[in-house]
Amino acid sequence: MTDRASFLAAIRSAPRGLDPGLPDRRDAPDAPTQLRVGEDRAARLQAEAEAASTVVHRVTASDVAATVARVLVEANSQRIALTTDLAPFVDDVQATLAVAGLTGAIYAEVAPNRAHAGALDATVTGCIAAVAASGSIVTSAAGAGRAGALIAPTHICVVRDEQIVGGLHELFDGDVLAEAGSLFALQSGPSRSADIEKVLILGVHGPGNVHLIIVAPD
């Protein structure tokens, strides 16, 4: 068996190619995943998310729970789990769901049994950030879990306005990822495949029904 030392030694013994130096990202050119100067973050997030077939709701904090409940009722979801990164809204959402005759289990309690997790109809999560220019939410293993945001056919994500970053540079240069845990993920719209004759199908292994609730600043 090759060990680390001999494996790296083999690579080290090769001649070195030309090194142009590591470019400084501050000179980085404009990528499609960057915000244009002066562009409104929430508006761009909404536009990009909608372009990726996400249903976007722009609400105030007091309307979050009702919006969640309405989406779940419309989707006819029965088995529902909430992740802990929904924090400021968890109690509110649970109470509102109860009124609608639904229960929102806590994902961390469902997840240890894969069968139960796999049978969920919907999950409601928060996120650690959203990227406006790519229309992505960013979830963490510590918060939404690895699979919390894509295990069920319906996914609702709540993002607060102040969590929105402009583009990928801002995301990777910021410090929100530091506390993400063993995994972080960018997720942009419903699961999709066009493998069969290029016909776009939503909801392959992940959710086909994706909602993004953008909470306006207070």
Partner: peptide, 14 residues
């Protein structure tokens, strides 16, 4: 614009 799922993992569950 970006792939639907970009997952970045470092190590097992914590």
């Amino acid at each position: 614009q970006i792939t639907t799922y970009v997952s970045v993992a470092a190590g097992p569950r914590r």
